[in-house]
Amino acid sequence: SSRTRFTDYQLRVLQDFFDTNAYPKDDEIEQLSTVLNLPTRVIVVWFQNARQKARK
């Protein structure tokens, strides 16, 4: 499976959201998916990875 290449804009939006809320609800994931034009699955994985990094 090929890795998703995020744009600077997508990363900024995801990071800004994460800084406020590391555990987005389903409807928030749907909204991010629509706004960023990314599959919900990709967003879910991004947040999982971001939470892992934040824990270190």
Rank of each mutant, 00 (worst) to 15 (best):
L32D: 02
D26I: 03
F6H: 04
W46T: 00
F47W: 03
Q10S: 04
N37R: 09
R5I: 15
L14H: 00
T4L: 14
R41F: 07
D26F: 09
P39W: 00
A22F: 06
L38C: 12
L32P: 01
D26V: 11
R12Q: 12
T7I: 04
D27R: 11
Y9H: 12
Q48E: 08
S2Q: 15
V35Q: 12
R3V: 15
K56F: 12
A54H: 11
Y23V: 11
D26P: 07
F47G: 04
R5Q: 06
K25A: 06
V44C: 13
Q31N: 03
A50F: 10
T20I: 04
P24G: 01
A22D: 12
I43A: 05
E28V: 04
P39V: 01
V42P: 07
D16P: 04
V45A: 09
E30W: 04
T7K: 03
D16A: 10
T34E: 07
T34A: 11
Q31M: 06
T4H: 14
A50I: 03
T4P: 09
R3L: 15
D27H: 13
D8K: 02
D27A: 03
V13G: 13
K25P: 06
S1W: 00
L14F: 03
R51I: 06
V13K: 13
I43V: 09
A54G: 10
R12C: 01
Q15E: 08
R12Y: 01
A54F: 10
V42Q: 08
V13M: 15
Q10I: 03
L14I: 07
K53C: 14
S33E: 06
Q15K: 11
E30C: 07
P39G: 12
I43Q: 00
V42F: 03
T34G: 08
F17K: 09
R55N: 14
T34H: 13
N21E: 07
S33F: 00
L38E: 04
E30K: 08
Q10Y: 01
D26W: 11
K53F: 13
P39R: 09
N49L: 07
L38N: 00
A50Q: 09
V42T: 13
P24W: 02
L32R: 01
T20L: 06
W46L: 01
P39I: 00
D16Y: 03
N49R: 04
R12V: 02
P24M: 02
Y9V: 11
R41A: 14
S33I: 00
P39T: 11
S1A: 14
L14K: 00
F17W: 12
T7C: 02
R55H: 15
T34F: 14
S33H: 12
D8T: 05
R55Q: 09
F18Y: 14
A54N: 14
L36C: 12
L11I: 11
Y9W: 13
E30G: 13
K56W: 04
N21K: 06
T20F: 02
R3A: 15
K25C: 09
F6I: 09
